[in-house]
């Protein structure tokens, strides 16, 4: 992560401020350093930008179109506007497009962006005629560990990349189909147990909208019993092998309901294997038996 090479700076202008920024940095990093909050949805620190949601676009003088701040590297002399009228319109429309086609109710970030940019997704509703197309569909529950609710999927590519070369190297899922029919799928849309999935759950860890979810969380939500405010977070180390993965146990009513790992942890970078992610039932079994 931390290279020892001397860092060269370049000068750029962001919203009228002259800034010296490391030449390897992206616009989103440069904006963060300048205290400017650029919205991101598909982007996740530590993963290669997918460039897909386009909520992070900014206006770059001399560029015909807006540019994605998540992936665009800084260049000497760039003049960037992060909240110009064009930028705000594009971001508002991106949120209207998403909110009118995807269930964003579990993504506080997305809802916050929709408010911030004044999105009115209901304006695409038809007075007469067929309603606007959405990705609504029933939840895929095909195993005991996690569920897939693709009606919440914004196609950010994070799960595909985490399953693939960014973390797990299993390649059990991919984007299939095209255009509005594009979707995350296993080979021939098989249920997860019949696919190459190894149930590491790293896709759940990176999903920004709750489209991928622990079955335990899904069940509690269905029963109306999911209550994050009452949950305790317990940091621990996974007991299964010698790697020493950091675990965060999410505990509600004295039961583990979900396991995550801190994204900035140097051992896991947020990723786990099936044992660390899902191998917690024995704890509660023994408690219940005793």
């Amino acid at each position: 992560m931390s290279s020892r090479k001397p860092v060269q700076n370049v000068e750029i202008t962001i919203d009228g401020q002259l800034r010296q920024v490391p030449q390897e940095s992206t616009l989103v990093q440069a904006c963060q350093d300048a205290g400017i909050d650029v919205p991101t949805l598909c982007f996740l620190q530590g993963m290669t930008p997918a460039n897909a949601c386009r909520i992070c676009v900014v206006e770059l003088e001399g560029s015909r179109v807006l540019v994605p701040a998540c992936s665009r590297q800084v260049e000497r002399g760039m003049i960037v506007h992060t909240e110009s009228e064009r930028v705000r319109l594009a971001r508002r429309l991106v949120m209207e497009f998403l909110a009118s086609s995807v269930d964003l109710s579990l993504s506080e970030t997305a809802q916050e962006y929709a408010r911030r940019y004044g999105a009115h997704p209901e304006r695409f509703e038809a007075g007469v005629g067929p309603p606007p197309a959405t990705v609504a569909q029933s939840v895929k529950v095909d195993n005991d560990l996690y569920v897939r609710d693709l009606s919440r999927c914004i196609l950010c590519y994070r799960c595909v990349d985490a399953c693939g070369e960014e973390a797990q190297n299993t390649f059990a899922i991919s984007v299939a189909g095209r255009g509005f029919d594009a979707r995350i799928a296993t080979q021939f849309d098989h249920p997860l147990p019949d696919s190459a999935c190894v149930f590491c759950g790293n896709c759940i860890g990176v999903c920004p909208t709750g489209a991928l979810m622990f079955k335990s969380e899904h069940d509690l939500r269905k029963q109306g019993r999911w209550d994050e405010s009452s949950q305790a977070l317990t940091e621990t180390i996974c007991p299964y092998c010698g790697v020493g993965c950091a675990l965060t146990l999410h505990v509600q009513d004295n039961r583990i309901v979900k396991v995550t790992s801190p994204p900035d942890n140097s051992v896991t970078r947020g990723h786990l294997c099936i044992k660390g992610r899902f191998g917690f039932e024995f704890v509660q079994e023994s408690e219940e038996k005793s």
Binding site: V94, S101, V175
Partner: peptide, 9 residues
């Protein structure tokens, strides 16, 4: 192709 939101939706 469906990759980015502005075009897909």
């Amino acid at each position: 192709c469906g990759q980015c939101v502005p075009c897909r939706v």
